[in-house]
């Protein structure tokens, strides 16, 4: 590869290293795995670079995050072949009806540890839409692209992820007080 092409590649994706690391870290819940996945994702991205036609930094971000996400899933699948099936069984750990809601004040009073635990406890498919939306501020269209799901699914998944978070945070904060 020409040095100038590498420079172009780096300019498109290196600014998103923090975003890539954030996603990998929240998906894998392990800093070493996250680092390995980020490095691997950048190498994969380099291979696909010819196929990447987006010009702006924003397109570069979704494109890179898509590769990070898929690389993280590959690692998870290799580690624990049954992880996907188990975690996506939504009847597990649902803890109450979707119609029950905690007091808004309990959500307001939640501390960092409580929020972090509630997020970590979510199935990975729910966790990723929350991270992409709340930490990285991606639009539904961008989340759909990164997670490889329709926009309608982004909306319903986000909604359900939030109801679960509400219940978990509400319960933990109530217990604390």
């Amino acid at each position: 590869m020409e040095p100038s092409q590498l420079t172009r590649f780096e300019a498109a994706v290196l600014p998103h290293l923090d975003a890539a690391y954030t996603l990998a870290r929240y998906l894998l819940r392990d800093e070493h795995d996250a680092e390995d996945v980020v490095q691997e994702a950048y190498l994969r991205a380099l291979n696909y670079f010819d196929g990447f036609r987006g010009a702006g930094p924003v397109e570069g971000r979704s494109w890179l995050l898509t590769i990070v996400r898929n690389t993280a899933y590959t690692l998870r699948a290799n580690r624990r072949p049954d992880a996907h099936a188990t975690e996506f069984d939504e009847t597990l750990h649902s803890g109450g009806s979707e119609d029950e809601h905690p007091e808004t004040e309990l959500l307001r009073a939640a501390d960092r540890e409580t929020v972090q635990r509630a997020l970590d406890a979510l199935p990975v498919e729910f966790r990723e839409v929350i991270v992409l939306r709340e930490l990285q501020d991606l639009s539904y269209k961008e989340i759909a692209e990164v997670a490889g799901i329709p926009v309608g699914t982004v909306m319903s998944r986000l909604a359900r992820a939030r109801r679960r978070l509400e219940r978990a945070i509400g319960a933990a904060t109530k217990e604390r007080d």
């Binding site: 890539a20 690391y21 680092e35 959500l107 960092r112 929020v115 972090q116 997020l119 709340e134 930490l135």
Partner: peptide, 13 residues
Amino acid sequence: ATMRAQLPALTAP
């Protein structure tokens, strides 16, 4: 607001 306030975006080492 709580999620955004309590969950930091991370910085790569």
